[in-house]
């Protein structure tokens, strides 16, 4: 059994990553341990979970997340995820995970063709992934901040993902909240977070670390707490 304060998150820093400190601060605020991992490193030994924070890794040049996904540390992240260990990608981190093939789909430019930064209502669709134990239907208030946040997969993959419970969060103000029983899933435009099939890798567009210590809300702490609880239970 791992003592809570011994639970150690690794927070990966790429050139251009700007939210690493925010994530470390949020994790430490919750009473867990966190340390930075440099993109050029190749080992994740000693970490109980890994977070890829947001910020414009490599300036988002070429394509958001594309260059970072080829960093040495991403080989380690792939191995780590394959072992079933927990990985969370936030915003640009989500984009890096799709580019690295650890999550299905890809991110297109916002329909508005503009960057968007604001607080939104997010509804929990499925809590079978390791990073969330809040009941489906619950609404959270979380900030988003991205220019390329329109999730896209082909219809077959989408159906598969829905069947596997991989659609984790949706924007509540989209039609999905009013969808009928048979198709209680999100349309593509409203997907805010997806997991891999095993549920250990989660990519989310909202920034949970910004609403953890109370400065702008507290709804984000649940993601970090959930993974600690999950790992403790299986340990």
């Amino acid at each position: 059994m791992i003592a809570v304060s011994d639970f150690r998150f690794g927070v990966i820093i790429f050139p251009g990553t700007s939210c690493g400190q925010d994530v470390v601060h949020a994790i430490r605020h919750l009473g867990f341990d966190a340390d930075y991992v440099w993109h050029a490193d190749s080992s994740l030994d000693g970490f109980d979970a890994v977070v890829i924070p947001s910020g414009a890794s490599y300036g988002n040049y070429l394509r958001s997340g594309a260059i970072a996904s080829h960093s040495p540390i991403m080989e380690a992240v792939k191995d780590y995820a394959e072992l079933g260990k927990p990985v969370l990608g936030i915003s640009n981190g989500f984009q890096i995970l799709t580019e690295a093939g650890l999550l299905p789909g890809e991110m297109l430019q916002n329909k508005s063709v503009k960057y968007v930064s604001k607080s939104v209502q997010i509804s929990v669709q499925n809590n079978s992934c390791q990073w969330l134990d809040i009941a489906p239907g619950t609404e959270l208030t979380l900030p988003i901040s991205h220019g390329f946040g329109s999730f896209y997969v082909d219809q077959d993959t989408l159906k598969e993902m829905e069947a596997n419970g991989q659609i984790v969060l949706c924007y509540a103000q989209c039609d999905c909240a009013a969808a009928d029983q048979e198709d209680a899933s999100c349309s593509l435009d409203s997907i805010a977070a997806v997991s891999n099939r095993q549920g250990n890798v989660l990519g989310m567009m909202p920034y949970p670390e910004r609403v953890t210590d109370g400065i702008a809300g507290t709804d984000g702490g649940a993601f970090f707490s959930a993974i600690v609880k999950h790992i403790k239970e299986v340990a």
Binding site: G55, V116, S117, P143, S145, D213, I215, A216
Partner: peptide
């Protein structure tokens, strides 16, 4: 305008744009 700007990165923004003045925590 301001929703095109990231207003909260660094996790210290106490009073967001739209108020009389912005307030930022010295913080971490």
């Amino acid at each position: 305008i301001y929703q095109q700007f990231d207003q909260q990165t660094r996790n210290n923004t106490v009073v967001l744009p739209g108020a009389d003045a912005a307030v930022v925590r010295l913080g971490d």
